[in-house]
Write a protein that binds this DNA or RNA. Structure first.
Length: 748
DNA sequence: CACAGATGTCATTTG
DNA sequence: GTCAAATGACATCTG
């Protein structure tokens, strides 16, 4: 169920968003199996009925949050966040085809028109589209639809089929697009036989004729969609059926097959024609994109975390070597696509790809191509110091350092490298070694790398994509929202209570129902149990008051309680009596007391009325001192009860926030460790490079007699001014030792 | 029956 | 000073 929620939020919703953007109403609930909770509850969570009291004192809230995980406001807030994250997910995970399609359409007007396209079906350009404007709105839409299609076809380099007289251009275009998209699925073009198409179309039209005659745009869209769905059925791509099984195929199918041509056109028409789109779809997309841009930093960070990978062949890279490949295509966003000029080679234009550390790493590799394996093997050793000190100094063997060149790099380590060495020393002192690093990377890659119990960690909601911990932060937020939701299906016994309004509903019924809906997430069901009552909310929606337990305390006996709780023997027989008994049991003690004292107004009023109105109410009635006292007690207890609930919610919120902070910190730590490994790797490569250069230079040096210098007697050393000096070996050793000592001294 | 968790209540503090 | 909210501590109930 946990994964279901993640799946729904990140897959279903984006799917729904897409469909809603193109005007198709989808009831996703119907796609869920019967035992699954209603989508609404999954998405909104079961506790959205509860709101939060507006605390006048925020001193105890973290970051000054004015909203609470249980509040409606928070639900809205997190719903918005969830939507944003889903939009980001569009960029991050799936729906590559959507963007690719739009992008193709976008590109092509500038040129690539297939010469084989019959002009009859494809000559409709913007001008013709404008000419087609017959109706005020519909005409425009229609023309845009056609235009979008023609351009779409052109973009795709379509080979249009021979035009059948009765088919509209859209039909032909659609068929061609579908055929092209179904090539990958093994569907032959004959599937799109025109007579067959014609029949389908006729059937569709027969079915929809009456209803759609007036509705040109939506009718077209729905018709196209319907046809697409039929085609999907033929090719086995019926996405409603497939949806729960394969999200990626759906995200592909949605834009490419079920998307009415109008969408693409709307998306692109401003760019193509320079005219304002009559719809807000373009604006919506721009809004979404701007939202994505706003959060691009976060996304990029996570992406870089994901894609932090080692050079090929490196032991550390095995876990990452594939990572850049899969996300790359999925990272192609519409936004990015609109910037580039070529749609077909995403990797060339994807900023993420260009900024991949792996790219730089792999480019570094050729510097020492012959030693890459030995590099990696040495790097795999636990002695990190061996990476930075000449093998002759630390005694470890190094294939690349010829025996005739002892201590070649002793004098070449500059200050920066020494800093790195100190870092490495620190790492060694911490017990950090490459093996551990690789383990760490595996850990961080496989999951969020959190030591927190993942089953309780909100990050497990959505960070288990196999794409590392990137989404943990947002997922924790969404999990907070999900935890904040409670079933709104509270049955009400309150209305029957009449004067004794304040108090619990039927806990058994409600809770069972609620937990049935929330059962997929046990740790959240416990959150949802906590009723969160806001006085104003309660006054408006008294049936929402939802007290978990009917605590019938054995209070100190008082006169007020004398009439309470008739002995069990007195309650029996007869459904009415049973019902009364049931209702009695649902009443709180205060309600019983109020009833016993014949308080003339509801406990709800007593508790939730503002002070002035409360006093007014009291003044209206002639109440005895005992009644007044009881009323005040009821008010005090009721308020305190809600205050306690708020307090507990706040406490929970604080814990969740702290948990999230811990996750963030751990994620940062993991990232820093990965960066550290990366730096060490590149440092080692640089060292190898310097070493080889050293050997080359040293090997070419000749003394006055034309003989090469002995590596055992001489060494090259960088001078401060950048020049390279040939100095005796002993001197070089001394200097090397001095530099070796320096960082240690500095640390003390 | 023991236990943990949920909830209600009281006393007290805080603004 | 009063009031409402917040909160720790405790009691009680429930599963």
């Amino acid at each position: 169920m946990l994964s279901l929620k993640k799946y729904l939020t990140e897959g279903l919703l984006q799917f729904t968003i897409l469909l809603s953007l193109i005007g198709v109403r989808v009831d996703v609930d119907t796609y869920l199996t019967s035992q699954l909770p209603p989508l609404r509850e999954i998405i909104l969570g079961p506790s959205s009925a509860y709101t939060q009291t507006q605390f006048h004192n925020l001193r105890n809230t973290l970051d000054g949050y004015g909203i609470h995980p249980k509040s409606i406001d928070l639900d809205n807030y997190f719903t918005a966040r969830r939507l944003l994250s889903q939009v980001r997910a569009l960029d991050r995970f799936q729906v590559p085809t959507t963007e690719v399609n739009a992008w193709l359409v976008h590109r092509d007007p500038e040129g690539s028109v297939s010469g084989s396209q019959p002009s009859s079906g494809l000559t409709l350009e913007s001008s013709s589209g404008l000419q087609d404007v017959t109706g005020p709105d519909n005409g425009v839409r229609e023309s845009e639809t056609e235009q979008g299609f023609s351009e779409d076809l052109e973009d795709l380099g379509a080979v249009a089929p021979p035009v059948s007289g009765d088919l509209t251009k859209e039909d032909i275009d659609l068929i061609d697009i579908l055929w092209r998209q179904d090539i990958d699925l093994g569907a032959g073009r004959e599937i799109f036989d025109y007579s067959h198409r014609q029949k389908e179309q006729d059937v569709d039209k027969d079915l929809r004729d009456g209803a759609e005659q007036d509705d040109t745009w939506s009718g077209e869209g729905a018709e196209a969609l319907a046809r697409n769905l039929l085609v999907d059925g033929e090719t086995g791509e019926s996405f409603p059926a497939q949806f729960p099984a394969d999200i990626s195929s759906i995200t592909e199918a949605v834009p490419s097959e079920s998307e009415p041509p109008g969408l693409q056109n709307h998306l692109l028409s401003p760019l193509l024609t320079g005219t304002e789109s009559p719809f807000d779809l373009e604006q919506q997309w721009q809004d979404l994109m701007s939202i994505m841009e706003m959060q691009a930093m976060e996304v990029n960070t996570s992406t870089s975390e994901i894609l932090y990978s080692a050079p090929p062949g490196d032991p550390l890279s095995t876990n990452y070597s594939l990572a850049p490949n899969t996300p790359i295509n999925q990272n192609v966003s519409l936004h990015q696509a609109s910037l580039g000029g070529c749609s077909q080679d995403f990797s060339l234009f994807s900023p993420e790809v260009e900024s991949l550390p792996v790219a730089s790493s792999s480019t570094l590799l050729p510097l020492v191509p012959s030693n890459s394996t030995s590099l990696n093997s040495t790097f795999g050793s636990t002695n990190l110091a061996g990476l930075f000190f000449p093998p002759q100094l630390n005694g470890s063997a190094n294939d690349t350092a010829g025996p005739e060149l002892p201590d070649p790099l002793g004098g070449l380590l500059d200050e920066a490298m020494l800093d790195e060495i100190s870092l490495m020393d620190l790492a060694i002192e911490e017990g950090f070694n490459p093996v551990q690093a690789s383990q760490l990377e595996e850990e961080f890659d496989s999951d969020s790398g959190l030591s927190l119990d993942s089953s309780h960690s909100p990050s497990s909601l959505s960070s288990s994509e196999g794409s590392s911990s990137s989404s943990s932060s947002s997922s924790s937020s969404s999990s907070s929202s999900s935890s904040s939701s409670a079933s709104s299906s509270a049955s009400s016994s309150f209305s029957e209570e009449g004067a004794v309004g304040y108090s619990s509903d039927s806990e058994t019924l409600d809770l069972e129902e609620a937990e049935g809906a929330v059962g997929y997430q046990p740790e959240y069901s416990k959150f949802c149990r906590m009723s969160y009552q806001d006085p104003s909310q309660l006054s408006c929606l008294p049936y929402l008051e939802h007290v978990g337990h009917n605590h019938t305390y054995n209070m100190a006996p008082s006169a007020l309680d004398s009439a309470d709780l008739p002995p069990p023997s007195a309650l029996k027989k007869g459904s009415k009596e049973k019902q009364a008994d049931f209702l009695d049991k649902q009443m709180s003690r205060d309600e019983h007391r109020a009833r016993a004292m014949k308080i003339p107004f509801t406990n709800d009023k007593i508790i939730n009325l503002p002070v002035e109105e409360f006093n007014e109410l009291l003044s209206k009635y002639q109440l005895s001192e005992a009644q007044l006292s009881l009323i005040r007690d009821i008010r005090r207890r009721g308020k305190n009860k809600m205050a306690a609930q708020n307090c507990r919610k706040r406490k929970l919120d604080t814990i969740l926030n702290l948990e999230r902070d811990v996750e963030d910190l751990q994620r940062d730590k993991a990232r820093l460790l990965r960066e550290k490994v990366e730096f060490l790797r590149s440092l080692r490569q640089m060292k190898q490079k310097v070493q080889s250069l050293y050997q080359e230079v040293f090997g070419r040096l000749r003394d006055e007699n034309g003989r090469p210098y002995s590596p055992s007697q001489y060494a090259l050393q960088y001078a401060g001014d950048g020049s390279v000096l040939l100095i005796p070996r002993t001197l070089a050793d001394q200097q090397a030792r001095r530099q070796e000592r320096k960082p240690k001294d500095r640390r003390k």
